[in-house]
Simulated assay, not measured.
Amino acid sequence: MRSVEEIYAQMCADMEARCGFRPEDSCDLAVRLYAAAAQVQALEMQADWVLDQSFPQTAQGVYLERHAAMRGLSRMAGTKAQGTLRFSVDLAPASDLTIPVGTVCMTAEEVRFETTEAGTLKAGGLSVDIPAQAVESGENGNASPGTIVILTACPVGVTHCTNPKAFSGGSDPEEDESLRSRVLESYQRLPNGANAAWYEKTAMSHTGVVAARAVGRARGIGTVDVYISTASGIPSEELLQQVQADIQEKREIAVDVKVLAPTEKRVDITMQVAPAAGRSKEEAVAAAEQAVTTFFGGELLGQSVRLAELSSLVFSLESVSNVRITTPVQDVSVQQSELAVLGELTATSWEES
């Protein structure tokens, strides 16, 4: 990209070649030429920008989405993390306590969660578990166990809240690089109505599906099994039926197609993290737990869990200076029909010498 000064110098040189004189820098004509040079530079910048948006390799934002639309793709929307909130009391109540739908709790970082169903803490009981979700979509909603401990509006009689298990499945709207990768892959793996790419593309055109794997001859010649997953992992029966009906209508003749949920493959993680300078052990452990919890999502369908990738993810955290993963001891292989899910996560800290 030429600078304004380079364009101005070229204009002055051209004028000198054509008119026989070079304008003084302080004269009115020089000012006009400099203003014209600035406009020429703006036009060159606009032309470069237009060129970038003309190709999926360099397009951004809404322009990349338009390239995706030409390939039958769209940007995946963000999703809300799902989990369970446990409400409890110190002393068993004499009568039932009602916890209404929409009751909000939050973490110390003020990430909010709300119940999606009404619940009742029975007389004589000490706690009740109620399904809940993050108030806002995004990865911030993926909370480690025991981190949602603040009641923003206490139901009558209830004194404590927590999340016995991690909240997972929260995801941010798909970033440009991820969408770009899918657009370019659609050119490399051209769907023809009969190959695996077509089945996977058709499945992923449904809202909520973040990954799909087509397995040919799964049940013999003329059969195809299509496994799908959502951001939170296993898809609902309703989503499975929707994708099944769509593919059944469009499938090639004489092919038996089934749309299935993947088999969960539990992966237990044990790790040690060293806090970075100026960071506490608790902060490093919490950040590591959050990162690992977010890592295990529906996008892992059919993908093996690589320790190098997991270590790199934790090591990149600002609050962590080093990491050791002791379980598993090697990469976890995953079949096309399987989805790696987080089992028991144990994270502790250690001080580097």
Rank of each mutant, 00 (worst) to 15 (best):
E249L: 11
V255T: 11
E338F: 11
G343S: 05
G141K: 13
Q241R: 13
G208I: 02
E110F: 14
G216K: 13
S321E: 02
I247E: 02
A231D: 02
C105M: 07
V334C: 08
E237F: 12
R219C: 09
A69H: 11
S127D: 09
Q241T: 10
E200Y: 09
L151R: 15
E6F: 15
T223A: 02
E65H: 08
S280K: 13
T202S: 04
N195I: 07
S337G: 03
P173T: 06
Q303K: 12
G278F: 05
K201H: 01
V292A: 01
S171E: 10
V334G: 05
P155R: 04
S168W: 13
Q303G: 11
E110W: 15
G170D: 05
S232F: 10
A77N: 01
V104E: 02
A231Q: 04
V292P: 05
A194T: 14
G102V: 12
L151H: 11
Q46W: 12
E309A: 13
G20D: 00
A38I: 00
K265Q: 05
L310M: 08
M11L: 09
D225K: 09
S181Q: 12
T107N: 02
Q57G: 04
V215P: 11
Q60Y: 12
A134N: 04
I228R: 10
V305D: 00
H160Y: 06
I269A: 01
L313V: 04
A288M: 07
K265P: 14
S333I: 11
L43A: 06
G83D: 03
T207M: 13
T270M: 14
E238I: 14
L85E: 00
D331P: 14
A35S: 15
C161K: 09
L73F: 04
F21T: 06
G233A: 00
Q53C: 12
A17Y: 11
C161F: 06
S171Y: 13
A284T: 01
A13D: 03
G302R: 10
T327H: 10
Y227N: 01
Q188N: 06
T346I: 10
R66W: 12
A118G: 15
Q290V: 08
W350D: 04
E252W: 14
V209T: 05
P164C: 11
V4G: 00
P164L: 04
A254R: 03
H206F: 09
V323T: 03
M76Y: 09
G102Q: 02
Q244W: 05
P131F: 07
V31T: 05
S95A: 08
V243N: 02
L64P: 06
L301V: 06
A194V: 11
E238F: 14
K165Y: 09
T202Q: 14
G297S: 10
V332M: 07
D129Q: 10
D268W: 15
D90C: 13
D176S: 05
S26D: 07
Y199D: 10
S236W: 08
A197Q: 14
E175N: 08
E65N: 08
E44I: 13
S178I: 03
E185H: 15
I148N: 06
T162C: 06
A68N: 06
A108C: 00
R213C: 05
G298H: 06
P262T: 00
A94I: 11
S316E: 08
K80L: 07
G20A: 01
L126D: 01
A153S: 08
